[in-house]
Nucleic acid binder design. Structure first.
Lengths: 156, 156
DNA sequence: CCATATTACTTGTGAAATGCAAGTCAAAAT
DNA sequence: ATTTTGACTTGCATTTCACAAGTAATATGG
């Protein structure tokens, strides 16, 4: 159950502060990256990332992101244990933020994944459009499958 | 003194992870915002922000940002107690990141400072160019004053 | 049908980060 | 000389984090 405090009063009205209060920690943006570019949807998949997030932190962050309307989830009709997470439109619109952070780090630090970086550099608008479309497609698919609610195969 | 561990091994080579390890906390980006748009340069000035950062956290964050080459500092020739902080080119190039975070929050949350937001929306490139120029001007001025090293006025 | 796996989490616990108040210290100001 | 100011430290209680282990609800294999 994702019951979570609705809004614990901002420290200020500054929009940057609002962003930082939602996303300013060591994990939230990495989770969003995993959904956006690595196509992660389940708890298990997030755990497989290189940064090795702990399970309790992952559960906490997924809950917060959902509470902030950045991601949402539906249980998987073909496997009742699985919860499929996906980005909401609000979450998808974080793509420019992530992109600028990637480009900044790539320009000033020694980092990997240069293939992705080059894609962003060559045509940023195209890259953003593709990411957006892919994310929308994924969320549509998850929503559609959940809606059709396949009657569980009864064994025997 | 600002002796600080050089680089304590990244959790992964991902450029987003690099950004998050440098900037992913509740304060670093707000400090950079204060330098970029509020023109803060001294410890005291940072403390006056709406978000009310604690002095020990501020000292710690200024030290980290300096260790990461995002900001730098010079002691003020006209007042030996003061240290003037300024953004390095690397720090100035965070402007697009901050801008996208502000625009995202402004689009999805109820936030203040709509005047600034409108400036960003109307002509993002122009806004970024102005911010960049202003920051360069400030760092030049601080560096120049420190270089000239005015012989302290001897009283008597 | 039943034992074993999987998935998505909790719980427990020690370590680290945070927040607040108070204190330090050198350089102005009075 | 004394007080004030600016930039930090230090102490300490609280919160958050990371790692290991455990749990509950499916799912799978025999």
């Amino acid at each position: 159950m994702g019951k979570r405090r609705a809004k614990s009063r901002r420290r200020s009205g500054c929009p940057l502060n609002a962003s930082v209060e939602m996303l300013g920690d060591r994990w939230s943006l990495l989770i969003i990256r995993d959904m956006m570019v690595r196509g992660c949807r389940t708890f298990k998949e997030f755990l497989r990332s290189d940064e090795r997030i702990a399970t309790n932190i992952l559960a906490d962050r997924l809950g917060r992101l959902e509470a902030h309307g950045i991601i949402s989830s539906r249980s998987d009709p073909s496997d009742g244990r699985k919860l499929n997470y996906f980005l909401t439109p609000k979450g998808i619109e974080l793509a420019p933020v992530l992109t600028e952070m990637v480009l900044w780090a790539a320009a000033h630090e020694d980092t990997g994944n240069q293939a992705l970086v080059r894609l962003m550099q060559e045509d940023k608008a195209k890259f953003l459009a593709e990411v957006k479309q892919r994310c929308l497609q994924i969320s549509d698919e998850i929503a559609a499958r959940a809606r059709s609610e396949q009657p569980r195969r009864i064994k025997g």
